[in-house]
Every structure is written in C-alpha cells, then in structure tokens.
Write a protein that binds this DNA or RNA. Structure first.
Lengths: 229, 229
DNA sequence: GGAATAGTGTCTATTAGACAGTATGGG
DNA sequence: CCCATACTGTCTAATAGACACTATTCC
C-alpha cells in the first residue's frame, strides 16, 4: 500500500496582463458560485491527470479566454500551498503570468459581464474585491513582471507583432509606473543586439513623424539590465 | 460532493549547497529502496496537511540534516509537476535551495555513508547517478543561485557569521565558475551600502596579511547587479 | 506654419575593468 | 630575508542620464 501523507488538488491560475490606453490591466472573472461569490478571481482551472501545470495554464488561456496560441508570453511566477487557501479542499496553486497585446472582446467585456480587464492598481489598493489569495498572487506576479522587464526582452510580448519604440516604452512605463526619457530609451533599446529588428516599414498611428516598425529579435536576456528610472 | 480532477502528493525537495575547499557541493542521499535504489537523490519529504511547502522544506532541513535553525538561507526555486516524474504516484515537488556555510558531519559522511556532499559539476555532467528528475532540479537550482548572486546579497549565506572579503569572493567564483579580480572585487563589495559591516576584528586564517572580518548588513538587493566575469 | 512625435548628437558624471604599487602578517 | 594575502591608487573605455537639435508627418 501507498502512504498518502497529504493529498491535494493541483490548480493553475493565470494573471493575464495587458495594456489598455497605457494602463496596466489584469483579466478577472466574477465568481458565480461560493466561495467568494460575486467577487473577482483569476482565471484558472485544475491540472488534469495527463498534463503538467504549464500545459494546464496554456489550455486555460487558449480555451477559456480565447487568446490565440503563439500571441502571448506565459511564465511561471510562484506556487501557493498554504493549507487553508481554498476553504473547500487543499489546493496547491501554480500561478502564471501571461503577457498579451490584446484580450479578445469575447473574453472580457462581453454581454455576460462576468469577465473584465480591471486596473492592476485598483486590485492592489483594495478597490476591487478579490477572492481567495488572488490579490497576493497578482501582487507577486506584478513584481515578477517588473523584474523580468529589467532582465529580459519580454516587454515586447505586450506589443503586437510589429510595434514602434514608443509603444515598447509605454509598456515599461505602465509596468514600472515611471516615466522614461524617450530619447535615451530609443538609443538604448535600438542599440541592444538582437532585441529589435527593423522591418523597413513605418507607421503614423502614434501621430507625428512616421515611426519605424520593429519585430522582436533573437535576444531574450538583457545584460546589463534595463534600469527603472 | 467535491470533484477531484487530479489528486497529487505534495513534496518539498531541497538542494543544499555548500562549499568544500572552494568547490561547490550538493547534499545527496543514497536511496535504500526502489525506485532508483542505490542512486542518489535530494533530501526531501512530503508536505504535511497542516503546513505549507516552505515549512516542510525548513523542517526537512533542520530535522533530517541537522543544520541549525538560522544558519541557512532557504529559497524556493521551481515546481515540478510532470505526471510521470514519480513512477509510483503523482507527486508535485516544490524545489528549494538552501545555502549553508557548513553541513554537520552527522548529516554527510557519517558511518551510515548514505549521505554525502558531492560536487555539483559531477552531478550535472552525469558522473554521479541521480534518481527521479533530481539532476534537472539541481541544474535549475544552480542557475537560480547564479542569478541570485548577481542580484542579491545571499552569497554571504555560504559564509560563517564573520567572514573575510576573500571568503566571499570564493563563493562567487565557485558558484559562477569564474575568476574575479580580487582588488576590484574588494573595492566593489566594500563600497556597496549595507552589504558588509566591518567588525573591527581581523583574522589570518587565509594566510598573509590579516584580513578584516565582516558581518552581513541590512541590504538584500544589489542594484546595479554584480557582474559575472 | 504649427503641433506632434521620431530620431540623432553631445556633454558629464559614474563605473567596470585592468593593473601598479604599498601594507602587514607568517615562515 | 621571502612569500603570501590585504588593501589602495590610478588610468581607460564604456555608459547612464541630461538635454539641444533636426526630421517628417498631419492639421
């Protein structure tokens, strides 16, 4: 016989971050049932017997929120294992963050009004009522994202496939909550080998002089890191 | 009734890192029973119903290896959830790393010879036979430790309460696998506010001119980071 | 032309890294 | 004395940050 010291359900919860008008938002779902009925919670689901936590998070993202495969950056943040964190049973939660350029309207703001992109600032200051330990998870995910923006090129995951330097800068400003000097930022990021690859096309969608459109390059790690103002 | 989509055991596994004669070692235990009988594995245990994974790791460390409370740095590294990673049952493992100045002889190298401090290099190149996915875990833990040495002050966790700059430098060299210029290193770390606090005492245990003994200060984060050669 | 944003040039203060040279113990 | 290690000084190349200036679109 096998000894079962402590059995638990495994769950994957995802903090889907995106930018709406230069403001950082997170996708939340209003709970229809107890516990925490009527409050907001992260999208997520149980890890099935045949998959690992990362696969579970990816399925949740593509199937429940309709965010197309390949258009997001999904990354593990932390694990939450406190015994009472789910009042029903023991649930170990693997928290992921997903960085996406856009959330399909069907997932957030549809007629059902059971899902919404809410400002991260409002969630963290307590304005938005959040169930379970999901406020903590969102805070940890934000801190993780801030660190990763310093040391990797994942900021581009917030942008569409082709984007301008200013659009990239707005990502840093929104996640870090700072203002960056546009001229130094431009010289810095375009000077990093493998970060931004010019497409040769230009756009005027930000107004003013046409801006070069870039794709992401091969580089993933920023050494030395980007500095927060 | 409650729906159980996937039940799992929760385990905490710990990569205990220490330095032996300027070489990075990890504490491993030879398995007495199948599976992987006779091979090496990380110390660890199941997470009990009343505790979370971090507490489980801490208990494991103090009770099983006899490393005294307060003399180590314990930190979460990653979670491993692949369905087949334990051939017996589904086990989700929370991997931690512990940085310690010294492992008590009772834990490693005792008469039982079932535990030993083995070179990390030998584990990673396959010289040491390791069961489960623990080779992967040790590799991930090492990479995590390398990153943390760059960005935090935890290198001092490898040193006794009072230590010299050279002893600290040997930590960086062992974990990073590089050589650092002792003169620049000295000027750099002593110049970081809150990293090293001089005790006023000196030691000649490293030979040569007596070296100042330092305690760790309040700083935990290194900004800008230390650079690997 | 005026307004807006894109992008380049230049200066300065700081610093990582290389390396010379001095200090202070043990043998 | 020699040898080892500790520590300080100095130079250089690179760079983060501040900010002036030019470029190119839309209105």
């Amino acid at each position: 016989m096998t000894f079962y010291p402590s059995l638990a359900n495994l769950a994957a919860d995802i903090a889907v971050f995106t930018l709406v008008e230069a403001e950082l938002r997170v996708l939340l779902i209003r709970r229809a049932n107890p516990p925490f009925q009527g409050m907001w919670a992260l999208p997520g689901g149980f890890v099935e017997p045949h998959e690992d936590a990362h696969s579970a998070a990816r399925h949740e993202l593509t199937e429940e929120t309709g965010i197309p495969e390949g258009s997001f950056h999904l990354e593990f943040v932390a694990a939450y294992t406190a015994p009472g964190r789910d009042p029903r049973n023991r649930v170990a939660s693997f928290a992921y963050m997903a960085l996406v350029p856009q959330v399909p309207p069907t997932a957030a703001g549809g007629d059902a009004a059971d899902a919404a992109l809410l400002p991260v600032a409002g969630v963290l200051d307590g304005t938005v009522p959040v169930g379970f330990d999901h406020r903590t998870i969102i805070g940890d995910a934000l801190e993780h994202a801030r660190d990763r923006l310093e040391n990797t090129t994942i900021a581009a995951a917030f942008c569409p496939p082709e984007f301008t330097v200013t659009e990239l800068r707005r990502v840093y400003e929104a996640v870090w909550g700072t203002r960056l000097d546009m001229r130094n930022f431009h010289r810095k990021v375009t000077g990093i080998e493998g970060f931004l690859e010019p497409t040769g096309r230009k756009t005027t969608r930000d107004g003013g002089r046409p801006a070069e459109l870039y794709r992401t390059g091969e580089a993933t790690r920023l050494r030395p890191p980007m500095y927060r103002g």
